[in-house]
Simulated assay, not measured.
Amino acid sequence: MASRVNHASYVWLFAFVDVLLVLTFVLAAFTFLALPQINPPAKDADSAKPPGQMMVCASWAGHDDIDLWFRPAGQEKATGYSNKNGGVADLLLDDLGTDDIPHVECQFASSLPDGMWAINLHGYSVPDDKVAVHVIARMGAVKLVDTTMDIRARQERTVVQFRLAGGRVVPDSANGVFVPLRSAGK
């Protein structure tokens, strides 16, 4: 006579498989809900506002410490490493140039008062003979400056001076005449 299998002794197995299936379903549901949160869709470009109405950035490569100095109209003392918040302009980061990688310093102006504006570079620590520094200044979509200058150690150079009136650059007001910003603030 053939032996009969007693299915009642395997009830625990069916309960175990049932619990595993429920846990698998719950894990799949959490994964399905969490995946869209890992990489949310990009926001529209219009929704990302810049931190100011004017941006000035200097970038360079190498093991050099270049400082960006910026004096908006109506601001008595220029904004730079020793004066990070001048009222109109703010220095976001003083890049010390400690690593041999590309470096950037940026400043933003929160308003656009009428008068003379000036942008300078200073070679705080330049171990080589000179370093090429790329400077960009933008006011919204308008590019005011896009130039590259060589800076030597302890040298301060004016990138540009210009006059604003009514939130616009006065025609023929831009010049490269030197005006001390770093040394004038001491």
Rank of each mutant, 00 (worst) to 15 (best):
M1L: 10
S3E: 15
V5I: 06
H7A: 15
A8Q: 03
F16I: 02
V17P: 13
D18G: 13
V19Q: 12
L20W: 05
L21Y: 04
L23S: 04
T24N: 10
T24I: 12
F25P: 11
L27V: 14
A28W: 11
F32S: 15
F32E: 13
L33E: 14
A34G: 11
L35H: 12
P36N: 14
Q37F: 13
Q37E: 15
N39A: 10
P40A: 13
P41W: 01
A42M: 07
A42T: 02
K43H: 00
D44L: 00
A45L: 08
D46Q: 00
S47Q: 05
A48H: 03
A48E: 01
P50Q: 10
M54L: 07
C57V: 00
A58C: 14
S59F: 01
A61Q: 01
G62W: 12
G62M: 11
D65W: 08
D67H: 11
W69P: 09
W69F: 09
A73G: 01
A73N: 08
G74C: 01
K77M: 12
A78L: 14
G80E: 15
N83V: 13
N85E: 05
N85D: 06
G87Y: 09
V88P: 08
D90T: 14
D90P: 10
D90M: 14
D90V: 11
L91S: 11
L92F: 15
L93R: 05
D94H: 10
D95F: 05
L96Q: 10
H103T: 03
H103N: 11
V104P: 02
V104F: 01
C106I: 00
F108Y: 15
F108D: 04
A109C: 07
S110V: 02
S111F: 11
S111N: 09
D114L: 05
D114R: 04
M116C: 11
A118F: 04
N120T: 06
H122M: 11
H122S: 06
V126H: 07
V126W: 00
A132N: 06
A132G: 08
V133S: 07
A137D: 04
R138C: 01
R138N: 06
R138I: 13
A141C: 07
A141V: 10
K143G: 07
L144N: 09
L144K: 02
D146I: 01
T147Q: 07
T147S: 09
T148Y: 03
T148Q: 05
T148H: 01
M149R: 09
D150E: 15
I151S: 07
R152N: 13
A153M: 08
R154T: 09
E156V: 04
T158Y: 05
T158K: 02
T158A: 10
V159P: 00
V159S: 04
V160Q: 00
V160M: 00
Q161P: 03
L164I: 00
L164Y: 03
A165F: 04
A165E: 03
G166E: 13
G167S: 04
V169Q: 00
V169D: 08
D172K: 08
S173M: 08
G176I: 06
V177K: 02
L181F: 13
R182K: 10
R182N: 06
S183V: 08
A184N: 08
